[in-house]
Design a protein around this nucleic acid. Structure first.
Lengths: 407, 407
DNA sequence: CTAAATTTGTTAATAAACTTTACAAAGTTT
DNA sequence: AAACTTTGTAAAGTTTATTAACAAATTTAG
């Protein structure tokens, strides 16, 4: 260090602005405007951006040279020389989304407008659930989808993978995934990047579902909401001030371990199913149903093996015991929502997952929440259903790609 | 709308980058570097910023013309021409912080480095607690402080006011403040701005305390933490990903209404003290203490009127009943922290407020949390104590001012 | 004690990016 | 067919940055 007079300065820290930054910044602005307003003319871009015509012209030439913009030829005149219509070239590249489920692998391929162009899925065999095998399957699926979309693997710019477990998004490591045996500290991102040669993001699947619902689902445009996934497992995706919230140890939203009102207090242990999950997870709901059946001596093999959603369906038909199950589930869920709302004050709570998206549960929860004067967010069912994760994955891939299109 | 060929485009949306933006951006960068590294020379700024020497020279001249930077004269040579030392002119302006408490008004004045130069406080009389009277008191206090600091009211660039209630920070309206009679939908910001003629920010006092602890207290440098204020009231400041979280209706952190494990479920009503507050607020702790005293026939007038912190002090001395009070309070607090941690996964929880900052409570809570395998944030006592709000207010004022110094 | 080296800072020349002005191109309206 | 409107480009001028050259002031070395 050459510095001597002052105490101690570390070099360098600044981010100098140079004339070339203007070009970059304006190119980015124009590309964004083009993506939001395709097709449009240069004159439109002049009006939209506030830049001068020569600048727009030069930037568009630059974007065309990168193959990011295509010229569609003359448009309709509005009283003068007809405009040359421009369009963002959505097939300049593609992005992929992957959902690693407990029993199957699902994938989608989308263009740079986020339009899904093809999809692929496969059931796991037991052996295929190792991290290494999953990477191979993803590679296979990607190749199949590229073929189907008549494109090449090289044009896939980013791939986002949803894993059913606690995930360090920065490092791309799946820290733990209870439903996937031996998935602990799996460096999934680097494995995929090495296997496929494409930049990757790894996220928790429930977080992806939340992003999906925010992008083009029930939480569209909402800045503060909680996505609650009720299925075999119970978890939440926390979306605050327009962004996912992960927490200090990537475990935000692990509400399966939350306490249930009226049940004894417990300590939190990783390898034990949480109290909330045991109560309102799919298995918990079915257990409650069986208990009630037994108590009322109505148990038959057929009734006893009903799944949670089927029990809810019975409630819609007016079955007294099933209604009781819906009510107790709704009550526990409501307590959970109230506690979260007091802390976070979300605008909306989205109920998703195989069990959670059942409309009867939404209705029951809404009714109970209405008793409160506040801590009373809107409750909505997931509108993307099982596709939410995949849409969220596409969104994150698009976001990651955006910065790289003009880098 | 002149646009006809495409479906519909609204003008204008862009943010064009022009050469003058470079100057602005670089001036801002250099000012920031100067604030972080005062005193330093132009040559240092060249190295820190990565900009060329002529650019730095020209920008510094500009900053000097605005009186934002002062030249201290020659520094010590390090083997060549001695550098001209530059310093950010922290007395170019001042910022103020205000805390509206239940019984008193406290204010501080700080320079643009955030150094507190003077303070002022007054007890409220009953009549002085109306919004209008409070604005007058703030005006008086500000004038006193300016006199004390030998500066003028015109040099006060921003004032941040903490109010003990739910506050809409965008509009500057205090929506409700249970401890201040008739404070409902008070447009405090515009009232202060009109009275004093200075740009103002209004925030919830607990949120300000959280900001203060993050800036120069127990949460220094922590991106995700929860500040829990335990006093007569119970509330939390939620600090996530480096920013305060307010929620959709400005009521995030209202955990005084949270349910207490083992107590019957209740609906949430605004004008009724919350369950959590009734249990571990100062009054709740004192009631519990009196109950235990009565049960053990130890009640004396002297013991019965002890305040919560004094009861905790007795526990430190080994008093069995007092220890019991600490334990039950810690247990309820721990349950609350665990539930929040499952949702938010904070790195740290700061205990503050008159009751909460008692070290015995921190110790008890830490011990109980240690039983968990996760949902186990660090627990720390507030290090700024009753000053936390004021420091937070100064920080927010500085942040608001920063953008305006070069506008 | 003087000359060389070092560090700081300014001036002059050059480059990049934007804007304004002028104008060409290609329609519609009168 | 002439006038008007809209789109788009070319040329000239402005702003801001950089590099290169140099001046100023001190330390170091012979």
């Amino acid at each position: 260090m050459r510095f001597t007079t002052s105490t101690s300065i570390e070099y360098p820290t600044g981010t100098p602005s140079r004339p070339s930054h203007l070009r970059q910044s304006n190119a980015r602005t124009l590309l964004r405007l083009l993506r939001e307003n395709s097709p449009c003319s240069k004159a439109d871009l002049v009006r939209l951006s506030g830049l001068s015509a020569p600048t727009v012209s030069s930037a568009v030439t630059y974007l065309e040279s990168l193959n990011l913009v295509e010229n569609l030829g003359d448009g309709e005149s509005s009283g003068g020389r007809p405009p040359e219509m421009l369009r963002f070239n959505a097939t300049h590249g593609y992005v992929a989304g992957v959902d690693i489920g407990g029993t199957r692998l699902r994938m989608v391929l989308a263009d740079l407008n986020g339009r899904i162009v093809t999809q692929w899925a496969t059931q796991f065999t037991e052996k295929q659930r190792t991290p290494k095998a999953v990477c191979g399957l993803i590679h296979d699926g990607l190749k199949m989808m590229c073929q189907d979309a008549s494109t090449s693997l090289k044009k896939v710019l980013h791939i986002t993978v949803g894993a059913p477990g606690v995930t360090n998004v920065n490092s791309g490591v799946v820290l733990s995934a209870p439903n996937l045996r031996d998935w602990n500290d799996v460096p999934l991102r680097s494995m995929i990047e090495r296997e496929i040669g494409t930049e990757a993001t790894v996220e928790n699947d429930t977080n992806l579902a939340a992003v999906g619902e925010q992008w083009r689902g029930s939480a569209s445009g909402i800045e503060n909401f909680i996505f609650i996934a009720l299925g075999t497992g119970v978890g939440a995706g926390i979306f605050l001030r327009g962004h996912l919230h992960h927490g200090a140890n990537w475990s935000a939203g692990e509400i399966g371990y939350s306490a249930v009102h009226g049940q004894p207090r417990r300590t939190i242990e990783v390898h034990q199913t949480g109290q909330m999950e045991r109560s309102i997870g799919g298995l918990g709901i079915e257990a409650e149903w069986q208990k009630l059946l037994a108590r009322e001596r109505r148990s038959t093999p057929e009734l006893a093996k009903l799944r949670a959603t089927e029990i809810f369906d019975l409630a819609v038909d007016g079955d007294r015991l099933a209604i009781q199950v819906v009510n107790s589930t709704s009550q526990i869920l409501t307590d959970c929502i109230v506690e979260m709302s007091l802390v976070l004050d979300p605008e909306v709570v989205i109920l998703g997952g195989g069990v959670g998206s059942h409309p009867e549960l939404c209705r029951g929860t809404e009714k109970l929440l209405a008793h409160n004067e506040f801590a009373r967010p809107q409750v909505r069912s997931s509108s993307l259903g099982t596709q939410a994760q995949l849409h969220g994955a596409i969104f994150l891939s698009l976001t990651a790609t955006e910065a790289r299109l003009l880098a």
